[in-house]
Computed example of a mutant assay.
Amino acid sequence: MNPQQFGKVAVLMGGSSAEREVSLRSGQAVLNALSEQGVDAFAFDPAERNLFDLKSLHTDRAFIALHGRGGEDGTIQGALEFLGLPYTGSGVLGSALAMDKVRCKELFKARNLSTADFLVVEQGAHFDVEQIIAQFGAVMVKPAHEGSSIGMAKADTAAQLNQAINDAFRFDDTVMLEKWITGREFTVTVIAGIAQPIVEMVTPRGFYDYEAKYQANSTQYFCPADLTSDQTDYLQQLAQQAFKLVGASGWGRVDAMQDKDGQFYLLEVNTVPGMTEKSLVPMAVKANGINFNQLVINILEQTL
């Protein structure tokens, strides 16, 4: 690897989404890895600088470490396309679709990819919490356009559901109500179209929420996950199908669950996963003998 081949690299981090703090940590880790390998890289926070400054700074390409809205939803990708700057990860369409949980689910359903049943509620519209609980039992409430489990909550009574929906409306005007799945949680990293070893996340918190991801010391990770070879092959292929279906490319992560009967269900596609010390993508590739610095270079090489 010749670090000069990349030219001047902007590591986009921070931003103004609800995931700003995680993005700053991801971006700093990426910046450190690039700098350690001799790449001319610098930090760039779109919340603090005009994006057009990238041109005056003679930037050659961008490593996107922005999470959530403005960074993972096609917005920054479109701006970089306009500026003529190569960037890491998915393009405009793949980023936008993957960030939209509702359209992701609709695509999964349309292609008969296994995913849990769901409903959508809009702010200001009528919804009957009693009827929803009667239909689904327990429900996972998710803002339609947030990541890192922000605004998510489980509800198994009408009162809990009403509160959870109103809490989720603080983050989004559209909220998805997904039938609760009791079982195991997994994630599959996809790099250059190839599924990496599966990671299983085990938390005492009920589900893999924001605290379990970034703050708790009680979360356990198993990689490769304890699955049969047939189950591993099936889940990896399912993840690759989902990744391709939404138009994602480059690198990313697909989350899934397995119920008590062994059935797998797709949850969502992440096109700019976390790259912190607790992140899942570095954990997955490490099982394939790839360290963090190599991972960062592999991702950046996709922009050449």
Score class of each variant (00 low, 15 high):
A96V: 11
F52C: 11
K244N: 14
D73S: 08
G183S: 12
S23K: 01
E72Q: 08
V120Y: 11
F136A: 06
D40R: 13
A62R: 02
F52P: 00
T276R: 00
T174G: 02
Q135E: 15
A158M: 05
A116C: 12
T271W: 02
A98S: 14
A134T: 12
Y265P: 03
W251V: 07
A155D: 10
L66D: 02
K109P: 07
A18P: 05
I299A: 06
D60M: 04
N2C: 06
S26F: 04
A248W: 03
G71R: 01
G124L: 13
F264L: 08
A248I: 03
L107K: 03
F292Y: 11
N293Y: 05
D173Q: 12
L51I: 15
Q196W: 09
D172K: 08
P86Y: 03
A134I: 06
A192N: 14
M152A: 06
S26H: 04
G91M: 07
V296L: 06
P46D: 09
L85V: 05
N298I: 01
N291V: 13
M1W: 11
G84F: 01
Q37R: 15
A287H: 09
T187Y: 08
T88W: 02
M257S: 10
E185A: 06
A192K: 14
R61V: 07
N32K: 13
F292C: 07
I181G: 00
A195H: 05
Q5V: 12
A212F: 06
D209Q: 09
F82G: 07
F127V: 12
D156I: 02
W251I: 09
G262S: 11
D60A: 11
D40Q: 13
S249C: 09
P3Q: 09
S56I: 13
N112M: 10
M13S: 12
G183T: 08
K260H: 14
N162W: 11
G252K: 03
A134E: 14
Q237S: 13
